[in-house]
Design a protein around this nucleic acid. Structure first.
Length: 813
RNA sequence: GCCCGGGUGGCGAAAUCGGCAGACGCAAGGGACUUAAAAUCCCUUUUUCCGUAAGGAGAGUGUGGGUUCAAGUCCCACCCCGGGCACCA
């Protein structure tokens, strides 16, 4: 057959039509006898257009899904839309168009691009989080959390982004700025807000990082989560306030230094501070609190004010002054600390500023106790001037002193976390309404389960002015109290959209269920997710919320898995000319543009080839040209060799088949272990190069093995081209349903071993010998090699190292 | 400051278990085909030195040490880049 030109546009358009006309092509069923495999890519926000960053994410997942199908797995590969969120609302304000319309138009557009890319999703399971059929279960979970005391409302200082005009969770504040507006400083506002008790699971979230997830999730993600949870072991100790006898509880990780405590410092917000301070002092406290709103505490100089009160250190009965200090945080530990200036940087700075005594009580293991130190000694050492604990190491003293506090009832061991509860209230329209009613008589009343969903009103006025738009919708707000029946008001805040994405992957297992979020039996079949794939930017936000949600659902008895995903893969970013792609820079490359210029297959192959998937990759048009050239060479090679009658030379056949089996081996290994598709594709390129070299001498029999195997190997990376070639060589049926080729260790083996000859570790020659040549033979052959001889002449042979089939190293002096 | 990654040609990278450094691709240069261009195909391409040449010798994976017959790979110290956490007591 004459070779055909690789007309990517025509080929891809035709196969897209055929696939679209095959409903259920990628359908996944629960009742399969084959082992299941759940591969999941993080669902996108429907911003309006797929770009090459999305393509990279989906190309990885799609290659894996297709490989697993070919390996005989029952694959679940779903896709959906993280459809609530601010951009829809902002677009609505700008274009005077309802967020629902805007969102759905974007989804339709992105789905069209998905189809052009040929990704293998089971669209019957599509989840769109802004649909009542989905968000009603957010509300259902909210009620369940309330029942279990995991959802509560409190007045708190919360993060406020002026740009978003809404509250943010701690996880959504990056370097004091909003996660979506990197230059907008987040302010502190006191508001009544709903929280979910993520802290109730702090310990388990941490424990499972070290147990279940260690080794299966990327280290850097686990590290980030460990840091975020921030577990800290220490001791809580009560200092007694002189006069009233009230207790001031402090938290310290260094109770071994407590004999050196020279004052107690309260956070300016501390209730006791308000009580101790006079009017002037309260004004100072307010100053400190206000200063924090403007700047990060870390940028501000130490500031303090004496309250006038004194407290007694329970260990040595010393009387120490009680201060307030701007660096003490109300929401960490107990909101109060003991200051030990001799052994802590911050305390040293504070006490030096205010001329508070500095008393060293820990000496270095091999040194003396410092006198009038110029700097704090913060290492562990030996306790001195510490009563019965003198002479103990810091570690022993911590244990003994904590036990002492517990025995005498003025303290105990304590574990403190940095993690805080998840604030989920948002003062915006385009989200899930929080299903509670505020009644003047009954207080906060949950909406009865049979009244769900609480639908988003369609007549709300969206202004972006920082008040909940739902508050303006009279028909929505005014209801009767479910308890007493009197007029009451609905909650007008909506939920953080991270709620939506915390459990969507469970819904995929039973996407059309209208009686429950899902059928637990289906979850038991599919979960855990075998492989989750997404960007590392979600390492803390989405992934910690999802883990929390999973644990709550397990404790509700809905599921049995402890973690959502058995394995996590975080792919690198796609950058352009060394810069992150962003709309502001105008360097975003759209999927449409790429598919038209290069084709979907080329885009996939290039993105997988340019770098290992966990690293950032730079998109270059020249690189994409290279991927196109490769596909086009394969295509021409295959089409011109269909039905070619040729005798061939056995030597060429053997070489070609050997390379083929080596390629199968390499691609299979890459899929099974480390996902370095760049080397998989390099292997296929090497195979093609060799086939072209040997082409005139290949027999029909060899080609009959090589062509189909090559097409199958290419299938996960370039599905359109593979399908076209599969048909061209006279085969039928989707490529991804064919069995994955197997390699034969006998065929892939080289004819003979190439043994490297070294003298003193330097390459001096090589030797072709049969496999399995023994030690003595190799040594003799190496020493007989003229090149080797020229380097050992006149020298004394110290020893000869022989690695069979590999290397001989002659060591001379 | 603490904790994770990472540093290899002009560029993206490969070397999977301590055994030939630079596979594969890009870019560049040269050539074939063509009236010409595109496309395609072939060759060269880490570096220094010796040689007219064939060829040969040396250096080289951020820096400095170490282990080893043998180190990009293991150990120690340091430098640089990226990321996370941080007045968290």
């Amino acid at each position: 057959m004459p070779e055909r030109v690789y007309e990517h546009q025509e080929i891809e358009a035709r196969w897209q039509l055929r696939w679209d006309a095959t409903p259920g092509l990628y359908k996944a069923d629960e009742d399969s006898s084959r082992p299941k495999y759940y591969v999941l890519e993080m669902l996108p926000y429907p911003s309006g257009s797929l770009h090459i960053g999305h393509i990279r994410n989906y190309a990885i997942g799609d290659a894996l899904a297709r490989y697993k199908w070919m390996q005989g797995y029952n694959v679940l590969h779903p896709m959906g839309w993280d459809a609530f969120g601010l951009p829809a609302e902002n677009a609505a304000i700008k274009n005077n168009r309802h967020p629902y319309e805007w969102t759905h138009a974007n989804i339709a557009e992105m789905k069209r691009q998905h189809r052009r890319m040929g990704f293998s999703y089971d669209w019957d399971r599509e989840v769109t989080t802004c649909e009542p059929e989905y968000y009603r279960w957010n509300q259902w979970f909210f009620l369940k959390m309330m029942e279990r005391g995991l959802a509560y409302r409190k007045l708190a200082n919360v993060n406020w982004c002026p740009e978003c005009a809404t509250v943010l969770a701690n996880e959504q504040v990056i370097d004091g700025c909003c996660w979506r507006h990197e230059t907008t400083r987040v302010e502190q506002k006191a508001l009544s807000q709903w929280f979910w008790k993520t802290t109730a699971y702090a310990d388990e979230l941490l424990r499972d990082i070290d147990g279940i997830l260690e080794g299966s999730w990327p280290d850097r993600v686990l590290t980030m989560q460990r840091n975020w949870i921030g577990r800290s072991e220490g001791t809580e100790v009560d200092f007694t306030l002189e006069g009233t006898g009230e207790k001031i509880r402090v938290f310290t990780t260094r109770v071994d230094t407590i004999y050196g405590a020279t004052c107690v410092i309260l956070a300016p917000e501390h209730p006791l501070a308000q009580q101790l301070l006079d009017d002037a002092g309260r004004a100072r406290a307010k100053e400190m609190i206000d200063a924090r709103k403007l700047k990060d505490v870390s940028d501000v100089l130490k500031d303090g004010h004496f309250t006038g009160g004194y407290a007694i250190n329970p260990y040595n009965n010393e009387r120490v002054p009680v201060w307030i200090g701007n660096f003490v945080l109300m929401d960490y530990g107990t909101g109060a600390i003991m200051a030990v200036p001799a052994h802590d940087e911050r305390d040293f700075e504070f006490c030096t500023t205010y001329k508070i005594p500095i008393i060293p009580v820990i000496r270095p293991v091999d040194g003396e106790l410092a006198v009038n130190p110029k700097a704090p000694f913060t290492d562990y050492g030996i306790a001195e001037i510490a009563g019965e604990f003198s002479g103990m190491t810091s570690a022993d003293a911590r244990r003994a002193m904590s036990a002492h506090a517990e025995k005498h009832g003025f303290g105990n061991l304590s574990i403190t976390y940095r993690l805080k509860d998840w604030g989920i209230s948002r003062q915006r329209y385009w989200g899930t309404p929080i299903p509670v009613i505020h009644c003047a008589d009954c207080g906060v009343v949950p909406v009865p389960g049979d009244q769900l969903p609480v639908l988003l009103p369609t007549d709300a006025k969206i202004t972006g002015q920082g008040k909940s738009p739902l508050a303006e919708a009279e028909s929505f707000v005014n209801v009767n109290c479910p308890k007493c029946g009197k007029p009451a008001r609905r909650e007008t805040d909506t939920m953080d959209t991270f709620v939506d994405s915390s459990w969507y992957f469970y819904r995929y297992c039973d996407a059309r269920n209208s009686n429950a979020p899902f059928d637990s039996k289906k979850i038991a079949y599919w979960f855990p997710i075998d492989q989750y794939i997404g960007g590392v930017e979600h390492a803390i936000l989405h992934l910690i919320y999802s883990r929390f949600f999973t644990k709550v659902m397990r404790d509700l008895g809905l599921i049995t898995n402890d973690e959502p995903a058995a394995r996590l893969f975080t792919q690198g970013m796609v950058i352009r000319d060394g810069a992150k792609m962003s709309k502001n820079k105008g360097n975003v490359i759209s999927a449409d543009e790429t598919i038209t210029n290069y084709g979907a297959d080329t885009a996939r192959v290039f993105e997988l080839f340019a770098a290992p998937p966990e690293k950032d990759m730079d998109w270059t048009d020249a690189g994409a040209d290279g991927a196109y050239r490769f596909l086009s060479r394969v295509f021409r090679f295959v089409t011109r060799n269909v039905d070619r009658e040729s005798e061939g030379h056995p030597a060429s056949d053997r070489k070609a088949l050997r390379k083929l089996h080596q390629a199968i081996h390499r691609v299979t290994d890459d899929f099974d272990s480390r996902w370095h598709f760049n080397t998989s594709i390099a292997g296929l390129m090497e195979l093609l190069n060799l086939l072209c070299d040997e082409e005139p001498n290949l027999s029909k029999a060899a080609l009959d093995q090589i062509l189909p195997a090559f097409v199958l190997l290419l299938g996960p990376f370039a599905p359109f081209a593979a399908e076209e070639m599969w048909e061209a060589i006279g085969r039928t049926g989707p490529v991804f349903k064919q069995p994955w080729p197997k390699y034969d260790p006998e065929v892939e083996k080289e004819d003979a071993a190439e043994v490297i000859l070294q003298v003193n570790g330097k390459l001096r020659g090589r030797l072709i010998v049969p496999f399995g040549a023994d030690h003595a033979t190799l040594e003799k052959a190496a020493l007989a090699d003229p090149k080797v001889q020229s380097f050992i002449e006149g020298k004394q042979i110290v020893k000869v190292v022989v690695v069979p089939d590999k290397l001989v190293n002659v060591v001379v002096r």
